[in-house]
């Protein structure tokens, strides 16, 4: 019996020791750790950047988490992360944070590849999502209800879309809602009658982007300023970054970093 208690005591002690102290503290002893959290739109690209960065800088550990733009900004304000990611501009009360724009991202309106529709005007797009246009025959296709998909309230992509496309009119309540770029893409890729909007960087052959006012969404058209549905991807920091953080940001803004973003379909600062 005494032995059993002894074993339990040892187990408990080990548990307590292993839990005490923040994981970040332990890692810092021999590694440089940067924690980044926020927008799920920026996250996959930051992960890719971090992977490349860590190949050259073996002593660095970069911890990238999602949570959403607002959560990332909040976490940064509370100093729980070194860098917050946001896919929307900061609101008034968040302006105390420093911002670093890492690139620009186009929002593309996508349909299923089986859909013959090629082009939309900005006004038509707005009317589809506000419930004005509900049938594909209003756009010159078959007589079938449009299965429009939007993002949930509070999403950075949605708020950019509301600002840049809806321009004041509201997104209709009867429209389907999905909670990530990935799920919107999944719905559009599987439903021939669906329409949705996702990051330009995520467009592949499973969905087809529509031209807006005759402009093809592409890195080029965004760069020359012809494609208008564009939002910034930003990193936010609370005060000055420490040396480790600066090293990572410098890499992101360097030619190598920007080239990685470009390969992913985003619009950086170099050609």
């Amino acid at each position: 019996m005494v032995r059993k208690f002894g074993i339990i005591a040892v187990a408990l002690a080990t548990l307590i020791i292993s839990c005490s102290g923040k994981p970040v503290d332990r890692a810092k002893k021999n590694k440089h750790t940067i924690t980044i959290a926020g927008s799920t739109s920026v996250m996959p690209f930051t992960e890719k950047l971090a992977e490349h960065f860590m190949i050259d800088n073996r002593k660095f550990v970069i911890d990238v988490q999602g949570g959403g733009s607002t959560a990332g900004i909040q976490a940064c304000l509370n100093n729980t992360v070194n860098i917050g990611m946001s896919s929307r501009e900061l609101k008034e009360e968040e302006k105390t944070l420093n911002t670093i724009t890492l690139c620009y991202d186009g929002i593309t309106i996508v349909v299923n590849p089986k859909n013959p529709l090629k082009a939309l005007t900005l006004q038509q797009a707005s009317r589809i999502f506000s419930g004005g246009i509900t049938n594909w025959n209003q756009l010159g296709w078959i007589n079938r209800k449009i299965d429009a998909v939007t993002r949930e309230e509070g999403s950075g992509t949605r708020s950019s879309f509301e600002e840049l496309v809806m321009k004041g009119s509201e997104i209709d309540d009867g429209i389907m809602v999905q909670d990530s770029n990935g799920s919107v893409k999944e719905v559009v890729a599987t439903d021939p009658y669906a329409i949705g909007y996702i990051s330009l960087g995520l467009v592949d052959q499973r969905v087809r982007p529509l031209t807006i006012n005759g402009v093809v969404p592409s890195i080029r058209s965004i760069k020359v300023g012809r494609y208008k549905i564009v939002r910034p991807f930003i990193y936010v920091t609370n005060g000055e970054l420490d040396e480790d953080g600066r090293k990572f940001v410098n890499f992101v803004l360097s030619k190598d970093g920007q080239n990685i973003l470009k390969k992913e379909g985003l619009v950086g600062f170099y050609d």
């Binding site: 959560a71 949930e152 309230e153 509070g154 009867g174």
Partner: peptide
């Protein structure tokens, strides 16, 4: 399509402030 009470919480919690 429709949205349930539980769905509402889980969908929007990530971005809500």
């Amino acid at each position: 399509p429709l949205r349930t009470l539980t769905g509402n919480i889980a969908l929007e919690l990530a971005y809500a402030t």
